Computed example of a mutant assay.
Amino acid sequence: MHHYDYKLDISKKEYGESVYSAEIRTHAVDFREDLDAELIPIQLPELIEK
Score class of each variant (00 low, 15 high):
D34Q: 07
D36I: 01
I10C: 00
K50H: 08
Q43M: 07
K50A: 13
K50R: 14
Q43R: 13
P45M: 08
E46H: 07
L44K: 01
E38Q: 11
L39Q: 14
D30P: 00
P45A: 03
A22L: 01
H3V: 06
D34F: 03
I42H: 00
H27I: 12
L47I: 10
I42A: 00
K50D: 07
S21V: 04
Y4S: 10
Y4I: 02
A22G: 02
L35Q: 14
D34I: 01
D5Y: 06
E23R: 12
E33W: 02
V19K: 04
Y4A: 14
H27Y: 03
E33L: 14
H2L: 12
T26E: 07
S21T: 11
S21F: 06
A28I: 02
R25S: 10
V29E: 14
V19R: 06
T26D: 04
H3D: 03
Y20C: 03
P41D: 08
A37E: 01
F31S: 04
L8Q: 06
L44P: 01
V19L: 08
D5E: 11
H27D: 10
E17P: 04
K13M: 11
D36Q: 12
D34K: 00
E46P: 03
T26F: 07
S11K: 11
L8D: 04
D5N: 08
Y6P: 00
S11A: 08
D34C: 04
L35T: 12
L8V: 14
S21K: 07
V29S: 10
H3W: 03
E33K: 15
A22H: 14
K13N: 09
P45G: 04
T26P: 02
E14C: 05
P45Q: 08
I40W: 07
E46F: 03
V19W: 06
Y20T: 12
K13H: 06
E46S: 13
Q43H: 08
K13L: 12
E38T: 06
E17M: 05
F31K: 00
I40E: 12
H2S: 10
I40S: 11
D30V: 04
Y20I: 11
L47F: 11
E17Y: 05
L47R: 10
I24E: 09
E14K: 14
D36N: 13
E38L: 11
I48C: 01
P45R: 13
E33P: 00
E14Y: 02
D9E: 09
S18T: 12
Q43S: 12
H3R: 11
F31A: 03
I48S: 05
Y6K: 05
E46R: 08
S18P: 00
Q43C: 02
E33G: 05
L39S: 11
G16S: 08
T26K: 04
P45E: 09
D34M: 05
